[in-house]
Design a protein around this nucleic acid. Structure first.
Length: 433
RNA sequence: GUGGACGUAGCUCAGUUGGUUAGAGUCCCAGAUUGUGAUUCUGGUUGUCGGGGGUUCGAGUCCCCUCGUCCACCCCA
């Protein structure tokens, strides 16, 4: 054990039964995206490093110190994607998806960031995301938030807070940034070291500092919502109106900013207090400038991404149970002839009932041992095929779960042709939960 | 990247101020009726005490290094 290989730090295996939750999440997400007319886009995990520098921003933490970057055999600098929005825009431009048209896209996949691992934060992690292109008004911002709200709800999650802010136009943001810097400079002595450093590199990030002293200082700082330009103001008002129309509760948070440079106007986050310091479960916003910045014609865009591991963690914390993938039927056999017939019977039942989950006993064992495996497998019923049953063309159908039934209903003999109907009834019953 | 806690059978954990062949529960396997599980009883398997080095007559217990997990910071989904 000690000598075995270990996985790379922060790169985790996901095992059954947890994978059932992942499958459930994937299914619900695909259905929800489809319900809003979003099409799935599959994007590569590796891109030219320059794409991320250009989109996310040279001086962001992600680009400066968190990317898995390396040279390939030709000497090109490549990076494992730290997020998918840049790839999505690149793919949209490269495939002509963004030229004078609207697009609604979603993606799911692994992302890579070289951070110190922690629960809910891994070096390889997974995101689900949605992006919409070519729509300027707040209606599409609203749609994306409603979509995220529906997804979270359908996953069975609750106690989440939607935080909302607007970063305004780039001009308004620049003006606000200057005002904020000016204010903070006047109180520079009271700033923590990190914030002082950010004063130069990325002053807006000071807004979400956790240092109490800095927080106190920010209480009297100018707020970005007061600095909004008229157009952004109207856009933001429209979005809030829409959220009220749809009954989606939100909390305005003028300190909500993003770590990626391309965001402007609407930004939002779904947060929870049940996941320790990794409380953001879904986040996004508008990035109208990015398409042009990556070489396309000016194209408005909005999107969000959600951390799958965090969603799974929260689902577990809130007791969400995935539909069971455990076998419904476990087929036991006694004796060589019966074993061979059982294999045939198993295949036939799977032919007749395509949704059936049937485990065929393998590796021999006495009947007692086989039934023990049947029980542990989670199956509803065990089928027993021994020499007597083989001769009669029948099996014993033994219920493993109904404890309060009479013994006669717990085990009955059924002829092979009857099995399809017997098990079909079982399928309906167990799909219900 | 910074600070802290932790790392003992597959799993959950106990191992007193360093002292002989390292324990429990669970799981797994076998038996307790010859073809009947989940309950019960009996027996059995499993560990280089995360890895490496050091101190010591003696280290799971102390020291150093290293790897990993977790928490907070940081960052963000």
């Amino acid at each position: 054990m000690a000598n075995l290989f270990q996985s790379v730090r922060g790169f985790n295996d996901v095992l059954p039964p947890e994978t059932a939750l992942w499958q459930h999440l994937q299914t619900v997400a695909a259905e929800t995206f489809a319900a809003y007319g979003y099409g799935e886009i599959k994007l590569p995990m590796l891109e030219h490093t320059a794409l991320f520098k250009r989109s996310i921003g040279e001086v962001t933490d992600i680009v400066e110190k968190e990317m898995f970057t390396f040279e390939d055999r030709e000497g090109d600098s490549l990076s494992l994607r730290p997020e998918a929005t840049a790839s999505c825009v690149r793919a949209g431009l490269e495939n002509g998806l963004l030229h004078n048209q609207q697009q609604r896209l979603w993606y799911a996949g692994a992302m890579f960031r070289h951070e110190r691992p922690q629960a809910g934060r891994y070096r390889q992690f997974h995101q689900l995301g949605a992006e919409a292109y070519g729509m300027t008004g707040p209606d599409i911002d609203l749609e994306l938030i409603a979509l995220s709200a529906r997804l979270l709800k359908r996953l069975g999650l609750s106690n989440l807070t939607l935080e909302l802010n607007s970063l305004g136009s780039s001009d308004a943001r620049a003006a606000y940034r200057a005002a904020l810097v000016e204010y903070l400079m006047r109180h520079e002595g009271a700033l923590d070291a990190d914030s002082k450093r950010r004063l130069q590199s990325n002053p807006l990030r000071i807004l979400d500092s956790k240092v109490p002293q800095t927080q106190a200082l920010l209480a009297d700082a100018p707020t970005i919502l007061d600095a909004l330009d008229d157009e952004s103001r109207a856009h933001f008002d429209g979005l809030q109106q829409g959220l009220q129309d749809l009954g989606i509760a939100f909390a305005l948070n003028p300190r909500l900013v993003r770590g990626l440079d391309y965001y402007g106007r609407t930004v939002f986050e779904w947060t929870t207090t049940e996941l320790g310091s990794q409380g953001t479960v879904c986040a996004g916003g508008r990035y109208d400038g990015l398409v042009a910045q990556l070489g396309g014609s000016a194209t408005p865009a909005v999107g969000w991404a959600s951390g799958v591991e965090r969603l799974i963690l929260l689902m577990k914390a809130q007791g969400v149970v995935a539909p069971s993938l455990a076998p419904q039927v476990y087929l036991c056999s006694v004796g060589d002839d019966a074993r061979r017939e059982a294999a045939r019977l198993g295949e036939r039942l799977r032919d007749e009932l395509p949704g059936l989950r049937l485990t065929l006993n393998a590796g021999g064992g006495k009947l007692a041992a086989q039934l023990k495996r049947a029980d542990r497998s989670g199956a509803q019923v065990a089928l027993i095929l021994g020499e007597t049953e083989l001769a009669a063309g029948a099996v014993q159908v033994k219920s493993l779960r109904d404890t309060n039934n009479t013994s006669s209903s717990q085990q009955q003999t059924a002829l092979w042709p009857e099995l399809k109907d017997r098990l079909a009834g079982l399928l309906c019953a167990s799909n219900g939960n």
